[in-house]
């Protein structure tokens, strides 16, 4: 009889420790990045592109990579939304719950969700070679779009599957066609769309393996879709492989910038999600 209470005690301690460990990891990662990134972080890092000899300790910053990353995230998010909203709408409003096509699509998007970005990158690169394309901003955007589509679709679908039948009926009984019901559906799943965007922006900005071969790397800010584009994760990676300690320090600073951007996005996302929930039934 006593034994089970002792067991309960031990279990509780272990569980608390495990949870503490999770928090410890977060603190440790943030603290490490902050501690090593802070000394090399200065205004130039975020506002200047690399000057000559940057990778040997010359002046400048990583604005090229920041802008490249933002362009890629913006492009892929817009493309991703344009593709995934109709798909989610089709799966949930036009197809019935037991439809074979809906089942197969969900499975396919699950698989796509699992495909590593390096595989997308390699696949896209070999197609680009085949087409004679060079590494470019456009190529990077396309690969990241492939990467975020399943994230968009899966997390929006999660919400859309719980659309109240009454809501659709209410719209239909006013004489709306299924297409015209999209406004109602979009407003209802708006918080889901916001969450999905948040998730995919996070994934898109942090991805390095996918853009490695497709977007390339450059010291200037891309001016067209066919120009190569640097990205922040790759910039961290390349600076880190430099033998010079001062360049490595700047890698840590760049990692700090990346982390700050990700955290800002996540906080903003939370606010936006709350805002979009206001009309929800």
């Amino acid at each position: 009889m006593r034994l089970k209470f002792i067991e309960e005690r031990i279990a509780k301690i272990l569980m608390s420790l495990a949870s503490l460990l999770v928090i410890l990891f977060v603190v440790s990662i943030l603290y490490t990045i902050l501690k090593r990134g802070m000394p090399a972080l200065n205004w130039d890092m975020a506002t200047k592109i690399p000057e000559g000899g940057y990778y040997n300790g010359g002046g400048g910053g990583v604005l090229n990579a920041i802008m490249g990353s933002l362009f890629i995230v913006l492009g892929s998010t817009i493309l991703g939304l344009l593709i995934s909203i109709p798909v989610v709408f089709y799966m949930n409003v036009y197809l019935s719950k037991t439809s074979k096509l809906a089942y197969i699509s969900r499975l396919a998007f699950d698989v796509m969700f699992g495909i590593p970005s390096i595989v997308y990158g390699a696949f896209a690169f070999s197609i680009m070679i085949y087409l004679g394309m060079r590494t470019s901003l456009g190529g990077g955007i396309l690969v990241i779009t492939l990467l975020v589509i399943p994230i968009f679709i899966r997390s929006m679908d999660e919400v859309a599957q719980h659309l109240p039948k009454d809501l659709l009926d209410a719209s239909y009984s006013l004489g709306a066609t299924k297409l015209e019901t999209i406004k109602v559906v979009l407003l209802q799943i708006a918080p889901g769309i916001a969450t999905a965007t948040l998730l995919s922006v996070g994934r898109a900005i942090g991805d390095a393996a996918g853009v490695m071969f497709t977007a390339g790397f450059t010291d200037s800010i891309p001016t067209s879709l066919s120009a190569p584009a640097a990205t922040l994760p790759l910039s961290v990676f390349f600076q880190l492989s430099s033998p010079s300690a001062s360049v490595q320090d700047r890698a840590y600073a760049s990692a700090l910038i990346l982390t700050i951007i990700v955290l800002i996005i996540s906080v903003l996302g939370r606010l936006v999600t709350t805002y979009f929930s206001k009309n929800k039934i």
Binding site: L167, D169, A170, S171, S173, L174, G175, V184, L187, I281
Partner: peptide, 20 residues
């Protein structure tokens, strides 16, 4: 849709559209 326009539906639980 023309038929449905002629018939206002009031369901069991009120179901306002997610807007103002």
């Amino acid at each position: 849709t023309d038929i449905r326009k002629k018939m206002g539906l009031l369901s069991q639980r009120p179901c306002p559209l997610p807007m103002s």
